[in-house]
Amino acid sequence: MFMETIPRIHAEIDQLSERRVALWNSLSQGRDPAVVEEIKALDVQLEELWQQIRAERARIRFGERDEIVRRARAEERLERAA
């Protein structure tokens, strides 16, 4: 899954970033509230995509969330029993 997910997200980030650059360039011609709103929307999308990459890297490094929680609870029980 890693081999597909992170490169796919990066490709989407690249596309959105190129669109954002074009919008910023159009703002140099004059302020347009619609363009400003689209840039803000793109910023939100880009942040969400970067968050997805961080989450995927954490999953790859540490495992699935449910598995991490299960191990932590097991360790906690062992500590209390000791």
Rank of each mutant, 00 (worst) to 15 (best):
L27H: 03
I39Y: 00
N25Q: 08
T5R: 08
R59V: 07
I13A: 01
R65H: 04
R57H: 09
E79V: 15
I68Y: 03
A34V: 12
M3R: 14
M3A: 12
L27A: 01
E4Q: 10
E64Q: 06
I6W: 00
I39V: 01
E79C: 07
E4A: 06
P7E: 09
G63V: 05
L78F: 14
R73V: 09
A81D: 15
G30L: 00
N25L: 07
R20P: 06
R73C: 12
R61P: 12
R54M: 08
E38I: 10
D14P: 06
Q51N: 15
Q51I: 15
R31T: 05
Q15S: 13
R61D: 14
I6C: 09
L27K: 01
E37G: 07
W50Q: 15
L16A: 11
F2R: 11
A58F: 09
E37M: 02
V35R: 08
S26Y: 01
F62K: 02
E37N: 08
A11P: 02
R71E: 14
L49M: 03
R61S: 13
R31D: 04
R59Y: 01
A82F: 12
L78N: 13
V21E: 11
K40E: 05
R54Y: 07
Q51G: 14
R31N: 04
E38K: 00
A34Y: 04
I53A: 09
E37Q: 07
A58L: 11
E48F: 13
R19H: 11
R80I: 15
R57A: 07
R20T: 09
Q52M: 04
A58S: 10
L49H: 04
Q15W: 04
D14H: 06
Q52E: 01
I39H: 00
R70H: 10
S26K: 04
V69W: 02
M3L: 15
E56G: 03
L46A: 11
E67T: 11
N25V: 02
I68C: 11
I68H: 13
D66H: 13
E76M: 13
V21W: 06
I53P: 00
E18Y: 05
R19C: 05
A72D: 10
R77K: 06
E67R: 12
S28I: 02
I9F: 04
E48L: 15
E48K: 15
V35I: 15
A11D: 01
I60N: 07
E56D: 06
R54P: 02
A58N: 10
E67D: 14
K40G: 11
L49T: 00
E75Q: 13
K40S: 13
G63L: 02
R80A: 14
M1L: 08
R71D: 09
R80S: 13
R70L: 09
L46S: 01
G63K: 05
A74F: 12
L78Y: 13
A11G: 02
E67Q: 08
E56V: 05
I9Q: 02
I68W: 03
A41P: 01
A74S: 09
A81R: 14
L42M: 02
R59T: 05
L78E: 15
I6G: 03
N25M: 11
L78I: 12
D43C: 00
L49S: 00
E79N: 15
Q29A: 03
L27F: 01
R70T: 10
V69R: 05
Q52K: 05
R20N: 07
S26T: 00
R54D: 08
I6Q: 05
D43H: 04
P33R: 03
E75D: 08
A82T: 13
